[in-house]
Design a protein around this nucleic acid. Structure first.
Lengths: 251, 251
DNA sequence: GACAATCAAGAAATATCATGCATTTTCAGG
DNA sequence: CCTGAAAATGCATGATATTTCTTGATTGTC
């Protein structure tokens, strides 16, 4: 492989993953780590990346990486995720729904206590690869690729075997009368089942989901224990939900 | 061959591969590297290409997507993965083991035919999110984070429900006498179980895994249908395996 | 503080390079 | 057909680039 090409590839990896790990790149390219380290050193000299111990990072450390870029409202979702993650206590089992919002919960889970995370989403499970203390239970089934969650009879059965303390639910719409709803019938059934197996359910809701109805109902508003909503939501829009006897946490 | 003809061919190669390697072109044309280098120097002077150490690149490095460029880089694992992926036929069910090598299989799966992929690795499942035609079956269980695969009784049970046509197995070591082995006891049991449920098993092996033994045996060499190995493996190192009546495919 | 991973710097090995020159091929003009 | 010039090619050589290896320092982790 040509040297200049290799450097371009390293930049690709940096853009894609938001990081470069010298050792891994050396293995991938079948070259010594010295060579990769020299490349990183030179590119750091040219201001193309920032050298750190073990590899390199983008110059502006929090340039939105690939996953975050897909996610327009990432700031809000990250705040909701962090708020939800705070609710997890040592020894508990939490069930994480699929979706970009609950992925933020996974990213913000506390790293100093031990607990169990169950999920039917391989994406969520992959997020937890590097979590130091979380035990992960993966629920299998036929993968519904649009939302990347396991579905079908197998998924239902494997969820039935669990009794999570908390279920963090993601939906596409919430409405005071029509409750929570989502776009896929099968998925709605799974979400409902997880909720029924769990001691309590909390729903993460970004602002644009309020007062909407999607085709497939999941649960009524008062069937869940709480909502987690952005702090900037005006109180009067939340009032119809608060009237239904559901706790509302602002993040 | 005429000089001008040769230069045109070099430009073709550049367009086709996105790169020209002087040494390789010299071999292909059965000419000295000096001649090719002279050509490249002249063409660079005419602005037809960009000269770099070892060969040449297009003037405006147009950016094909990352996967395409990684193919240029084509590590050994990618080649093994592509070879394995070729073996998948329409309508089949294949089971993909966890690991970086089998992840390459997932990346190279054909996109023009329909088939089913089963896996107990959320990482592999995540790789297939954007595959247009693959049906994905996710096997759940307790996640063993070191290799990111589901393990335990639940995983065993959900695997038992499948009868894959082909199992692409990844291991850490292969030895003519001691067979295939890996580092974790639980994982070894799961691998063995998947293999026993599958019609045939193929093992992807990079060069450094040969003639080694890891703590936990998985299968004997002759219990699998075939090995997929790098083309540059010398025949004499493969002979002890070939003697055990196992097919060997070079990639 | 011990240990392993990672690092930088320089030496050594290898690969690639440009140059000059000899040889061969091509070809126009005799 | 012959000849000499021009072009093309291969080889030798010393220079440069690249990679790996070695060594000892630094950093991160437990």
């Amino acid at each position: 492989m040509l040297t200049s090409q290799r450097k371009a590839l390293i930049l690709d990896i940096l853009r894609r993953d938001g990081q470069v790990i010298a050792k891994r790149v050396a293995e991938d390219f079948e070259l010594s780590e010295d060579t990769i380290r020299r490349d990183l050193r030179e590119m750091a000299g040219e201001g193309l990346l920032k050298r750190v111990h073990g590899g390199a990072l983008p110059i502006a450390p929090d340039l939105p990486d690939f996953t975050a870029r897909r996610d327009v409202a990432s700031g809000v979702k990250a705040r909701l995720g962090a708020k939800a993650a705070q609710m997890v206590k040592a020894g508990q089992m939490v069930f994480l729904d699929g979706g970009t919002t609950t992925a933020e919960v996974a990213r913000h889970l506390p790293r100093d206590i031990a607990f169990t995370v169950a999920t039917h989403s391989p994406t969520i499970a992959a997020e937890l690869e590097h979590h130091p203390s979380a035990e992960v239970i993966l629920c299998g089934g036929k993968l519904y690729k649009h939302s990347m969650v396991a579905t079908g009879a197998v998924a239902m059965a494997s969820i039935s075997a669990l009794r999570p303390d908390t279920f963090f639910l993601g939906v596409t719409a919430a409405h005071p009368v029509h409750g929570f709803s989502t776009g896929d019938f099968e998925e709605a059934a799974i979400k409902r089942h997880i909720s029924r197996c769990s001691a309590e359910t909390h729903v993460l809701l970004t602002a644009e989901k309020f007062d909407l109805v999607s085709p497939c109902p999941v649960l009524a508003i008062n069937e869940v224990a709480g909502l987690i909503v952005p702090a900037e939501m005006p109180a009067e829009r939340l009032q119809p939900y608060a009237d239904l006897n559901v706790a509302i946490a602002a993040a």
